[in-house]
Computed example of a mutant assay.
Amino acid sequence: MENKKIWFVTGASKGLGLSLVKKLLSEGYKVAATSRNISDLETAVGVNSDAFLPLAVNIKSEESVQEAIEKTIGTFGKIDVVVNNAGYGMLGGLEETTDQEARDNFEVNVFGSLNVIRKALPYLREQKSGHILNISSIGGFSGGFPGFGIYCATKFAVNGFSESLAEEVKPFGIKVTIVEPGYFRTNFLSEGSLVTPKNTIAEYQSIRDSQNMHQNSLDQQQAGDPEKAAAAMIAIANHPDAPINLFLGADAYQAAHQKIASVQKDLETWKELTTSTGF
C-alpha cells in the first residue's frame, strides 16, 4: 500500500469525480478530494478513513487552492496524481448566452483548473514525478453540438493548454493526460451541473430540441458506466506509457473518428489553396 499513488481530485461530490474517489478509496489509495461544500462531499463519499481527506475548496480562488494543496502535502506527504474534474455544462446558443454566463463557465472549467495546476506544479517538479489528468470532454475535441458552443470552447481550451503543458513538464518527469468522455450516466445533465441561459431565443429550434433531449430524454439513459470510467483513469495513471488523449466511451471514440475524418477531408480537398499561400 505504501507504493500506491496519492491522488488529489477536484469536483468530487458528484459525477465522475465521485465515482473515481470512491473507487480509489475502495482499492486502498489515499485521496484528497475537493468540493465547494465539504458536508455534501463527506455525505456523497460516505467513508470515514485516514486515507480520505475531504476539503472545501473554491477553485476560483488561488488562495483556497493553495491551502488545499498544502494541507494534502502536510497530511499525506506528497501528491502523485492531480485530477482536474471540477466543472459544469452550459447548454445555450452563442447569441443567447450573456457575456457573464460565458465568463462564469470559463472561470470554473478553465481558470479553476489552471489554478490547481499552477499551485500543484512546484511540488511535482521538486519530486520529479507526477501525473495531471485534466477532465475535458469529447466536446473539447469536436464542437459539432448545437447549444454547447461555450461549453465546448471551455473544453477546447483545456485540450489546448494541456497539450502545451505536457511538453512543458516532460523534462521534470511529469505526465499529462486529457480525459475526453462521451456521455456517462452521472448527474451531469441534472440541475446544478448543466446550466441554461436566462434569456432564450425562440427561433433557435435546434437548440431547444437539444435542451429537451439532454434534460428529459438522455438524462440517466447515458450509455457510459462511471465505474468503468473511474477504473480506466486509475489504469492510465498507473501505466508507464500513458497517452496524452484518453477518449472514454464508444460514442466518444466514434465522434473523434468523425472529427478526424472531417479535418482530413478538408485538408485534402483544399490542399492546393492551403499550400498556395507561400512567397
Score class of each variant (00 low, 15 high):
Gly46Leu: 02
Glu62Gln: 12
Gly93Glu: 08
Ala242Ile: 08
Val81His: 01
Ile79Cys: 00
Thr177Gly: 02
Ser136Ile: 01
Gly77Trp: 01
Val263Pro: 03
Lys228Asp: 13
Val158Asn: 14
Ser193Leu: 09
Ser129Leu: 06
Pro54Tyr: 01
Ile135Gly: 00
Gly74Ser: 08
Thr200Leu: 03
Ser276Trp: 04
Phe111Thr: 11
Lys14Asp: 03
Lys22Ala: 05
Glu180Leu: 07
Leu20Gln: 08
Ile150Ser: 04
His131Thr: 13
Val65Ile: 09
Ala229Thr: 08
Glu62Thr: 11
Lys4Cys: 14
Tyr88His: 03
Ala12Gly: 00
Trp7Gly: 03
Gln222Lys: 12
Ala102Ile: 04
Asp225Gly: 05
Asn109Val: 00
Leu133His: 14
His214Tyr: 10
Gly112Ala: 02
Phe188Gln: 11
Lys128Asp: 13
Val82Cys: 00
Gln211Glu: 04
Ala33Ser: 10
Asp104Cys: 10
Leu55Asn: 06
Thr274Ile: 10
Arg185Thr: 06
Gln215Phe: 09
Gln66Glu: 10
Ser113Arg: 00
Phe111Met: 09
Thr43Trp: 03
Gly87Asp: 13
Gly139Ser: 13
Val83Tyr: 07
Ala250Gln: 15
Asn245Cys: 04
Asn37Asp: 15
Arg118Asn: 14
Asp241Cys: 10
Asn238Gly: 15
Gly130Asp: 05
Asn238Phe: 09
Ile207Met: 03
Ala86Cys: 05
Glu42Phe: 02
Lys119Thr: 05
Ala32Pro: 12
Ala230Cys: 05
Ser26Asn: 06
Val179Pro: 06
Gln100Ala: 15
Ile79Leu: 11
Tyr88Phe: 13
Lys30Ala: 04
Pro181Ile: 02
Ile79Gly: 01
Ser162Pro: 04
Met213Phe: 07
Gly87Gln: 08
Gly112Met: 07
Glu191Leu: 03
Thr196Ala: 10
Trp270Ala: 06
Gly140Ser: 05
Gly139Met: 14
Lys228Tyr: 09
Ser142His: 11
Ser217Gln: 12
Phe76Met: 04
Tyr183Gln: 15
Val81Ile: 15
Leu94Phe: 04
Ala157Pro: 12
Ala261Pro: 00
Ser206Gly: 00
Val116Pro: 15
Pro122Cys: 04
Lys60Gly: 08
Gln221Val: 01
Leu91Pro: 03
Val158Lys: 13
